[in-house]
Design a protein around this nucleic acid. Structure first.
Lengths: 234, 234
DNA sequence: CGACGGGCTACACGTGTGTATAGTGTGCTG
DNA sequence: CAGCACACTATACACACGTGTAGCCCGTCG
């Protein structure tokens, strides 16, 4: 069970090194990598800032250790939840409270530029594409479909504070989680766009793609003004 | 048209003050509020760092000015797009390239703790709830449904760099935008969960909500360990 | 018992930050 | 022309940051 996996690491987690890593995971996720200082993390873990360096060498190495730990734990917990059959849908596993803390850290780490987390994202994207093919789901652009779905799901993690606030309960605790999960199930089980409107939108996009005279500007060129209008779809 | 609104401000935007604001919008969105220094912004705008302070008083005031500007421009552009009828669905307006840059900034600003952006989020959430009621859409928990949808949509903005990377084209330019929009339309027009599975998940959540013995821990209490398992749904 | 090694702390250093202030040039007004 | 308001720059200050180093405490082993 999930508690077992945590228990396996209980002895190790009593060490200062583990306390530092846990504090780092929490603060990095909350404030971002740059936003959480080594001194903050040390204070959170109840040790001196020098000890952080002693155990991990540098802030970047500490972040790497957090990345590795989060990814490993994530795989373990996902495996356990899957084996126990606690969750009926793969989509829901990703928002399981125990998983969510780690997902939240990884999302933030990727946002702040982690190669490891980015690689994991890419791997999951490929797995998702394969899954789509296996399920026989027919979409216009499998990669775009899966990419959009994944980054949107990540909004649940990066914006989890805002979500918890409007729901009136922390989504990492049972009460808030249940509310969020209900919204999520409703969201995934209702098609908001009718086939007619969807077809209409696809036609519009088709026109935009081929008829647009604005294709000259590439993303490598940085615009001088922020709100330039080269994307005007007329 | 959209270009008109930009044109109206063209003269004003030639001023150093406007260049600073535009540079701040860009760098704040890219690196976060703390990640973009006043000196960076000044260099990006081609002025001295002192001038930033002269025009805006403080970094916090500069950020406030950016919040206000982004929100005002967003309202203008949304209004224009709506009046011109360029977009067939309200969902798509939010991902229009011209809107996306501003949305991206506001999402990041809210993530980094902006009261103004948070207030706008709350306002849009209320509007969304009203819209759900008007449309006669029946969901288990309208607020949770709308909240989940909004934070997920925000993932498109906060993770737009990753999305652009896997799509091979900047989603703020036409090519990448079209790919993203196609994925989005597919996502919104297909129900991934069948009614049966959705009912099953709702039943599981019902059981979890009432039968869980783990409700003692509240989000006000900060756990000592990061990966505690109080959220175990057994 | 004495030496050793690792967990751990205290403190110093250089850098980049937001902020503050003094000063420069320039165009407009009386 | 004198004076002044304004956009703008240069420089300084205090502070927090990541990093580096010296040393303390204490259990272990020869």
């Amino acid at each position: 069970m999930v508690a077992g996996a945590s228990g396996d690491r209980a002895a190790e987690d009593l060490t200062a090194r583990a306390r530092i890593r846990d504090a780092a995971l929490r603060l990095f996720a909350e404030r971002g990598i740059d936003g959480a200082s080594i001194r903050d993390i040390a204070a959170e873990a109840g040790v001196s800032s020098g000890l952080v360096r002693h155990h991990f060498g540098s802030k970047e190495a500490l972040r790497d250790a957090c990345d590795s730990y989060a990814m490993d734990r994530l795989d373990e917990i996902r495996g356990e939840l899957f084996r126990e059959g606690h969750i009926n849908s793969g989509f829901m596993i990703e928002t399981h409270p125990a998983v969510m803390r780690l997902q939240r850290y990884l999302a933030r780490s990727m946002m702040d530029g982690s190669d490891r987390a980015t690689a994991m994202f890419d791997r999951n994207l490929r797995l998702g594409e394969e899954w789509i093919a296996q399920q026989g789901i027919t979409v216009t652009d499998p990669r775009a479909y899966m990419g959009v779905m994944m980054v949107m799901q990540m909004g649940l993690f990066t914006m989890h504070e805002q979500l918890s606030r409007v729901l009136g309960a922390d989504v990492r605790e049972t009460e808030g989680y249940v509310r969020m999960a209900r919204g999520l199930v409703d969201f995934y089980s209702h098609a908001l766009l009718s086939p007619e409107i969807a077809a209409e939108l696809h036609a519009t996009l088709e026109r935009l793609q081929h008829g647009s005279p604005t294709g000259g500007a590439r993303h490598t060129a940085r615009p001088k003004e922020y709100d330039d209008d080269r994307g005007d779809p007329r």
